[in-house]
Design a protein around this nucleic acid. Structure first.
Lengths: 161, 161
DNA sequence: TCCCGCCGTGGGTTCAAACCCCATTGAGCT
DNA sequence: AGCTCAATGGGGTTTGAACCCACGGCGGGA
């Protein structure tokens, strides 16, 4: 399976330039674009965006959309319009397709800038997260590190044990 | 069934002009007017309006009204006059019929402007919400994204599982 | 120590889409 | 019938994204 053969690992600090461009370190960009240049940027939580190979992201999303579409047509969700509306709202805003320009550089799209919360000229922490690459607001990154690192050994053991 | 065949998905930022006109992106306007040009604008919450195909909105509204009417006639709500009064009041102000002008442009009606909270010249976030199109005040939109996005996967699973 | 190549950053240009202003049209009212 | 107001559609202008190139800093090698 694509990208499964290569874990995305690495950490780097990059600056977001005046036009919201961000260059990825080669060690992360290389494996990411290995299976096709098409990428998907997704909102994870405030202060964190994730970058996926489209080959990984697309099938998962399309499957969910197909199920949702067919259920709607069958009228199965007539009593849950509010939930469908909310899920649809998030589906629209959650991801955007993009590709890397020269120098392994990407442009953070309009709707994702406020969510990331980094102003032009500010720093972004680029982190490999095994299956994707994450872009963190430095402050949010510090908070996650502080909160999660003490349990790291236990989490890893749970996965490898 | 109308509009069920096409999920409304997409996100865009547009500006409200001096006459409270707003142009929709083609990708959202197309599917929305696919089954008839008649639309309904509804108040969702402060900072958010939703735009529905009349073919979808009408049946839902009529159904609710029918239930309310029959319960009233049966005297089932005699002890809850206050609630009925409040519901009736909101039913009156909740929605307005409208249609798109050229260039996929709509006019936000008088009573809806303060509810949306965007002044002329300000930005509006236009979001596809599967069954309707939503118009958001940028600030309210950010708050919803921050609050709801972390639970996205669970919510989607609840609908498609 | 000096040279050279690579990587990260900023800037200029081109091109397309979206926004704003304005002229024209149509309807409604006096 | 004439006037007034509002809506509509066209065109110019501006904004933003994609592409290309230039500078600086760092590291490796000679």
């Amino acid at each position: 399976m694509a990208t499964a053969g290569q874990l995305l690992i690495g950490e780097a600090i990059r600056t977001l330039d005046g036009r919201f461009r961000l260059s990825l370190p080669l060690e992360l960009a290389g494996p990411l674009v290995a299976d096709g240049a098409r990428l998907v940027l997704a909102k994870e939580r405030a202060g964190c965006l994730s970058l996926w190979s489209a080959a990984v992201w697309r099938p998962r999303l399309d499957a969910a959309l197909d199920v949702l579409r067919s259920k709607l047509q069958a009228g199965l969700l007539a009593q849950r319009v509010g939930e469908v509306q909310q899920a649809g709202r998030l589906l629209s805003a959650r991801h955007a397709a993009l590709s890397l320009a020269g120098r392994e550089r990407l442009v953070v799209p309009e709707g994702f800038r406020a969510f990331l919360g980094v102003e032009p000229g500010g720093d972004v922490v680029v982190v490999g997260a095994a299956v994707c690459v994450e872009l963190w607001h430095p402050k949010a990154w510090q908070e996650v590190l502080t909160a999660d690192m003490p349990d790291f050994r236990r989490r890893l053991d749970a996965l490898t044990g």
